[in-house]
Structures are given as C-alpha cells and as structure tokens.
Design a protein around this nucleic acid. Structure first.
Lengths: 211, 211
DNA sequence: TAGATTGTTAATCGATTAACAATC
DNA sequence: TAGATTGTTAATCGATTAACAATC
C-alpha cells in the first residue's frame, strides 16, 4: 500500500458503508463474499467495490472472493478505528445527550471523556455516566486528557468562537453539528453534520421526483 | 426552466449551502452579490456557482450580479421550502427531542405534528409542545393528518419494520437516522443521516491527513 | 485442471473549471 | 458608452463502469 497516495473523498465516503455491511455479514456468520454478491446487497457495481478496495491493497483472492472478517478488519484499520480516540462533547442539550447515550460510538473506540456546557445548573451532574463540566475548563481539559475530537452540539451563534478555542487547544478534529461553517485553519479537520441541509435535500426530492 | 431536466445530485447537495449563505447575507443587509464575491466567501469557484444556478434559470444580471433576496427566494422554491411539510418523529429519545426542540425546522416550514414511541410511560406527555403518541396509532395518524415526512430516530433493529409501515401508510419521505439502510420501494424517498459513518470519515481523515 | 473471481487497464461517462461572447 | 459580470460553450479533469488477463 502506497501511504502517500491521495484517495478520493468519493471512495472514503463509501468505506464506512462497506464496513457496516461486512459487520452485518459477520453477525450473520458469513465468512466469504464476492464483489458480485456484495454489489447486489449494497446496490452498487461490483467494479466499484473492487476499484475502491484496490486503492488500499489487494484484499481479495482470485477465484474465492473476500474473507469477510479480514476485509472488515482491514477497513477498520484504514478508517482508523482499530485504536481509540478521546472525544468530548460541547453542548449538553438533546443532541449532545443523544451522542453520549448512543453506546456504539464508544464500542467503536470513540471514548467520551466529558461534556461541556455553560449552564451552571448542570455543573457536576452526569449524563449517562459522563460528568458535565463548565466551558471555562475546556482548554485545560483538552490538553490534559489528550482529546482528539470535539463534537460541537451548540447553537450556531457561538459555534465559531468555541471552534476557535478548541482548535487552539490542539484538538485534531471537530465534528460540527452547528448550522454554520467554522472557517478554521486547514490543519484542523472539520466534519460537518448539517441536519437542516439534509432536510432541505429531502424536501427538494419530494418536490422534484418524477413519479 | 425545463422541469423535466434531471439535476445531478452534486448540484442539489450544494443548494442548501447557497441558501444558507444567502440568508446570512440578507441578515447582514447585503442586497447584491457577484458569483465571484460569493465564491470567495464559500470557498468554491465562481464558475461552479454560475453553472449550478443556471440549471434552474438565469437568476443573475450581466454587469450586476445576483440580487440576494430574490436568489434566496428562488432557491427556497427550488428546494420546496416555499410551502409547509407535515412531519412526525418516530422515537422520542434524545435525537427525536433534539429535532423537536430545534425550532428552525418549523420556521422553514417543517411542521412537527406528533412524536411516536412505544414507551407507555411517555403516552400523553408533551415534548416542547408536541404530544407523544403510541406507535400503534401511527398509520391512522399519518393518513388523517397528511403527513409527508417521517423522521426515524429509533434503534437500527426496528427501523426497517417501522420504515415499511410508514411507507405503506403513504408518507412521501423518510429522514432516516437509524444506522441501517431501509430497503424500501423506489417511490419512497429516503434521506439517510448516518452519524456513525460521518464519525468514521472524520477518523479516517485524522489517520491520513498528510501534515 | 477448470471454474471462479480478483486486480487492473481501458473506455465511458459525468462533473468541474476555464474562457469568452452576450448583455446589462 | 465603458466596465462588469453573467450565461453558456468548450476544455479539462476525475470518477465510474466495462472488459479481460492474471491467478487462486
């Protein structure tokens, strides 16, 4: 595998879905699968699956197909979920709570080390076992606990400011749920989850589907 | 405008973002903008903006640029948010509550008519003014209240079953937050929000960013 | 070995960018 | 009118699909 090769974001976008399907095959006790069978299940072309995987190496075997477990593990490694990531949530509202309560993230190695909010009434409380801290302790906490990822589940109006603070504190990536772009330096990774945009795309499709 | 022309999903994906930037310009009192100025703000090419918009008609004026308010309105129409959509939430957990509490959806015309859950303890309670009903009343409610959109904020294991029920009840679109594909007939629109996939893409970027 | 299926190259298709004539 | 900026065509770039030789 050529570590310097740049993989297109179209490929990366599909990897987690492969990972999910392979996980389900494993749960179903399936040990091998061909690109053709997988393509039928996933409603993509077999060609695309083989092209995508071969960006990272030859994981299959001619005449046999792919070993489900080992392909699953390989994709896990590629996605960087073969090791843990320390994470905090900023914003203890429903969305922040939803992320904390969804235990699968933790299973995948995303360890939630704390929740931050500026509502004094929440100080010292716990949400699903995670302690709520006040926002002014954030920078110190990030540096002392080796926090890599921040989930920003706060309103748009304060998102940029907080984004800048956590970027300065040295986090590697921000998972941004605020309905705005953060405009941070390029060395900070930002993965946006813009729910309002998702809902508008859905609305577009309702308005324009042909039949 | 040619109503039969099929617009690529790459274009549709960008429209809500244009809409958001135009909204912010309006709030800032800006009345006109050129594709070039907008391209700088949004970090895309001016060419792309002009190409994208011209899929739907010539909204600009040579030598002048685009009128912010009227372009905003036009994109709103294209996205189908110039009129209301009745919506229900299935799953009264944190994620469902987050959607109900986020008042901007309602402002954009997505009217939340009810929340459904199978937890008997919640029956008759309200979440931010929206009544929680039991899942067995769902089909009847959808048909009687002209529900177009269902937000599925329930665990993966029951998502497919519920998806099928609401599709049969006649909803046009499902906003799917469950970590699975729904595999419904093509006439039901499904917009997926797979948070775990988003987080894995973020993880990939952490593992593979060059500098 | 024969059959199956990958890995990979070539062909096609689509999306983005560049360029510029049209026009306000 | 002159300058600015669109709308639109052409050129480029990238992603997907098809095809098939390599090989298990």
């Amino acid at each position: 595998m050529d570590n310097n090769k740049i993989i297109s974001s179209a490929v990366i976008r599909r990897l987690p879905r492969y990972y999910r399907y392979l996980g389900e095959l494993m749960e179903g006790g399936i040990q091998r699968i061909s690109s053709n069978e997988l393509s039928t299940k996933m409603k993509v072309t077999a060609s695309q699956i083989r092209q995508d995987l071969n960006n990272f190496g030859g994981f299959g075997q001619q005449g046999y197909g792919y070993n489900v477990k080992s392909l699953y593990d390989e994709i896990g490694k590629i996605l960087g979920i073969d090791h843990t990531h320390n994470m905090i949530i900023i914003g203890a509202g429903n969305l922040g709570q939803a992320i904390i309560n969804y235990k699968d993230f933790e299973k995948r190695g995303f360890i939630i080390k704390g929740v931050f909010d500026n509502d004094m009434k929440l100080e010292g409380k716990t949400i699903s076992g995670v302690l709520v801290r006040m926002t002014d302790k954030m920078t110190e906490f990030i540096m002392e606990n080796n926090i890599e990822i921040v989930a920003l589940t706060i309103p748009k109006k304060c998102a940029r400011e907080i984004g800048k603070i956590v970027a300065d504190a040295g986090v590697k990536a921000i998972w941004n749920f605020a309905h705005t772009d953060l405009n941070l330096p390029d060395d900070v990774i930002v993965e946006n989850v813009h729910l309002s945009e998702s809902l508008m795309r859905l609305s577009y499709t309702i308005a324009n589907k042909s039949k």
